[in-house]
Amino acid sequence: MTENEAELIKRAQAPDAEAFCQLAGRYGRRIYSLALHYCHDPQDAEDLSQEVWLKAYQAIGTFRHESGFYTWIRKITINCFLNRQRSSFFRWRKLTAQLTGDQIDNAEPALQVPSFEASLNNRILVAKVMGALAQLTPRQRLIFLLKHHEGMTYEEIATAIGCSTGTAKKAVARALTKLREELNVELPPNECVPCAAGEY
């Protein structure tokens, strides 16, 4: 935690909304991205991420500098996601590979657009990945995102979600299988047999 960030946190605890907005500006993109891949809808992602920041602002007095500010925010984010999952509040929109280009444009108007061809390929890739993630349960999707988006270890995920390490590993494995099916990555032809290559 930088000294400037500590100062901002102290001011936010005063409470100072402007200081808190500066903190939100630092980590807002990561939280929004996580929310976007979790709920697959830009509007829901914005609502969800802003709800995270509002809850964090209301609870900023309880932040005791025992962990990093982003770790604290991420914990609030996970709790928000899980609560939202329980209440089934957000609208679930599957952005599958069957979406046309227009539909993709409507669904995600803010995507980065480097060029037309690259953009089309990228959008198809994004749609396929989101379609694969859409086939997972919200919990499995969250575990996969925490692993690959946030780079958390299985132990950290298990602690944050409240599950076992094995469950976290299974969720990631299931997400990988779904992604592999959706992205149409062929299995190796000689996959099937007990081969003699690795006899030890």
């Binding site: 993109r29 929004y32 991205s33 976007l36 891949h37 830009p42 995600e108 803010a110 995507l111 980065q112 657009v113 990228n122 890739l125 994004v126 396929k128 990945v129 989101m130 995102l145 690959h148 988006h149």
Partner: peptide
């Protein structure tokens, strides 16, 4: 890559 690309502009 998809996660990175899905970031808003």
């Amino acid at each position: 890559t998809a996660i990175h690309l899905a970031q808003p502009a």
